[in-house]
Each structure stands twice: as C-alpha cells, then as structure tokens.
Design a protein around this nucleic acid. Structure first.
Lengths: 95, 95
DNA sequence: ATAAACTGATTTATTTTATAAACCAAATTT
DNA sequence: AAATTTGGTTTATAAAATAAATCAGTTTAT
C-alpha cells in the first residue's frame, strides 16, 4: 500500500485483538475469563488462542485448578511489540 | 463482547478502511487513483468498492473521461459517520 | 450407583471474506 | 493490423470467522 502501513493480519481480527488487549492489561488470564471478557464462543476462542500461540504472541499453559482443566494465557514480549506496531500502523488509516 | 465495542465488519478490512480513509481526505477519488493509493489489485478493489457502495458508505459514479471509462467514488454522510463510529469502537481495544 | 446436567475445552463443518487469476471491451501504440 | 495498454468485472481459490457437534471429566440430583 502507498501511504498506508500494512496491518498485521494476525492482529487485525476482532477476537484476537480483544484477547491481546485483555492480556496487555492483566499479564495473565485463563480461558474462561477470556471467553467472558470477549463474549466469544469457546470454539472460536480456542482456535484464535492457538493462532496467537503459534505466532509466539502469547504463551499458553494447560494445567488444573482443583480437578478442572485450566488454560492460562500470557502475552509475550513478541506479542507486546507486535501489538504496539499494529497500533502504530493503524494510525496511518485514522488521520 | 464485554468491555469491547463491536467493530463494524465492513470497515474492519484493511483495503476497505484504506479506501474510506482516502476518500475522507479527498471527498472524491477515481478507481485508478484508489488502486494506486492503496496498492490493491484491481479485482480486489472492484469487489470492495461494491461492498462499500452497497452499504451506502460511498457513492459510485461511472462515466467517461474522454473516451475512457472512469469510476468516481465519494464518501457519503452515512460512510463518514460509520467511520467515526469505527474509530471510536477501536479505542476500546487500544488503551 | 446411575442418569442428567454442567464445565472446560477441542474438533469438524459451514459460511463468509479476502485475494488472485483470468477475462473482456475499448483505446492506444508500433 | 497485430500487440499492448487501460479500466475495469467476473470467476476461482485460499484463508478466516463462526457455529455446531463432540469429548473427557465433574458435579448434582434421584
């Protein structure tokens, strides 16, 4: 694009952006919290968490809380930087 | 979504957003200009212009410049308002 | 103890969207 | 008069989002 900065496709997704945004304010959130905070369906959230994880934007730790499975997500340094870059790029669209 | 505002899916697209952004600064641009300003392929641009037009976000006027066809796009009031709302919604993701 | 319902997810299938490739009609260039 | 360029549209393919179905285990009620 001419004057427009490229928008990281991984972050240019409503749900993935919401997940990243949440994790930036908390540094740690589990699957259930993210599902409620974003209003997403569990299936969609599961898929998008995988994508962010595979890109190294978040880390995912699967364990148990008592007897129930619990998936904890955290943002990584790579993820933080990607988010900041995305916000910068966005500005070229929003005078 | 809980704390996150819904992002207008029509505007949450890199190319459509670039088209709208361009039209906001110019109030009028033709197909060729938009293609160069956005760096998009003609096919992609054609499709996205249709979508914005069908939503009433832009008006599209097909005429001739000399003997060559010329498609002129302009943003509508509806489009301007939708863009402003989109920017507002975005803020809920970008602390 | 067993069935029913709930939790915390993942997997699969469906729909939608984005992108690219192919094409078309007319004009221009060689 | 071929070949190329211009200004697009249409069609096909790839990628993404969403929803629906499934799964493993837990809790609740009978």
């Amino acid at each position: 694009m001419g004057e427009f900065a490229k928008l990281d496709p991984l972050l240019h997704s409503e749900l993935r952006l919401a997940v990243m945004s949440t994790l930036l304010t908390m540094e740690e959130a589990d699957f259930v919290y993210l599902r409620e905070a974003t209003g997403a369906t569990a299936g969609n959230l599961s898929v998008q968490i995988d994508k962010l994880s595979e890109a190294g934007y978040i880390s995912v730790e699967k364990g148990f809380a008592g007897k129930k499975p619990r998936t904890v997500c955290r943002i990584t340094e790579t993820g933080s930087r990607a988010f900041a870059a995305y916000v910068e790029a966005l500005k070229s669209y929003l005078h």
